[in-house]
Amino acid sequence: GATAVSEWTEYKTADGKTYYYNNRTLESTWEKPQELK
């Protein structure tokens, strides 16, 4: 079936920290989303 993983994109900030952005909800988070675990 369809999965929600594709909504999240992993980015890195200029200082090398990783964060996650959800293209559907426009939410961003420092925590790894449940969908990616």
Rank of each mutant, 00 (worst) to 15 (best):
E10R: 04
G1I: 14
A4K: 09
A14P: 12
Q34Y: 10
S28N: 05
T25M: 01
K17L: 10
E31D: 10
R24F: 12
T29D: 02
E10M: 09
A4L: 12
K12V: 12
T3D: 14
Y20P: 00
E27S: 04
L26T: 09
T9V: 15
L36I: 08
E10H: 03
Y20S: 00
G1F: 14
A4N: 12
S6D: 11
K32A: 07
D15E: 09
T29S: 10
T25P: 01
K12H: 09
D15W: 06
E7V: 07
P33N: 03
K12D: 02
T9D: 04
E35N: 08
E10F: 04
D15Q: 07
K37Q: 14
Q34I: 11
G1S: 13
A14T: 10
G1A: 14
Y21V: 15
E27D: 04
N22V: 00
G16R: 01
E7N: 06
V5F: 14
L36Q: 05
T25Y: 02
K32R: 10
L26K: 15
Y21N: 01
G16E: 02
T13S: 07
T13E: 03
L36A: 06
K37N: 14
E10G: 02
S6C: 15
K12G: 03
K12N: 04
S28D: 03
E35P: 05
A14D: 09
G1M: 14
W8F: 02
E35S: 10
L26P: 01
N22Y: 01
T13A: 06
W8I: 01
A14G: 07
K12Y: 09
T25K: 01
K37R: 13
G1R: 07
L36K: 04
E31G: 04
K12R: 14
V5L: 14
E35F: 06
E31F: 08
V5Y: 14
P33Q: 02
W8Q: 00
T18V: 11
E35M: 05
E31T: 10
Y20W: 15
T25A: 01
E7P: 06
T18H: 04
V5N: 11
S6N: 11
T9F: 09
E31N: 06
L26V: 02
L26A: 12
E7H: 07
T25Q: 01
S6F: 09
Y21W: 10
S28T: 15
W8T: 00
T29N: 03
E10N: 02
T3W: 09
A4M: 12
A4E: 12
Y21F: 15
P33K: 02
E10Y: 04
E35G: 09
E31K: 05
G1Y: 11
K37I: 15
K32E: 07
A2M: 13
T9Y: 09
T25I: 02
W8G: 00
E7A: 06
L26M: 14
T25F: 02
S6W: 10
E35A: 10
W8A: 00
A4S: 14
P33F: 03
A14V: 11
A4V: 14
A2K: 08
V5H: 11
A2W: 10
E31Y: 07
N23F: 09
K17P: 01
K17Q: 10
Q34V: 12
K32F: 05
E35D: 10
E10K: 04
E7Y: 06
N22M: 00
G16V: 00
E10P: 04
S6I: 08
E27W: 03
P33M: 02
E7G: 06
S28I: 15
P33A: 02
S6Q: 10
A4F: 09
S6V: 09
K17N: 06
S6P: 11
Q34T: 11
A2L: 13
V5M: 12
G1L: 14
A4Q: 13
T29C: 07
E27N: 04
S28A: 12
L36T: 06
A4G: 12
A2E: 13
G16D: 03
N22I: 01
V5D: 12
K32L: 09
L36F: 12
L36W: 08
A2G: 13
G1T: 14
G1E: 12
L36Y: 12
R24H: 09
D15S: 09
S6T: 11
E27F: 04
K12F: 08
T25E: 02
T13N: 09
K17T: 08
V5A: 14
T13G: 08
Y11C: 15
Y21P: 00
A14W: 08
T3F: 11
E27A: 04
K37E: 14
K32D: 04
S6H: 10
E35K: 04
Q34L: 14
K12M: 10
K32Q: 08
A14L: 10
N23D: 05
Y21L: 09
T29M: 07
K37L: 15
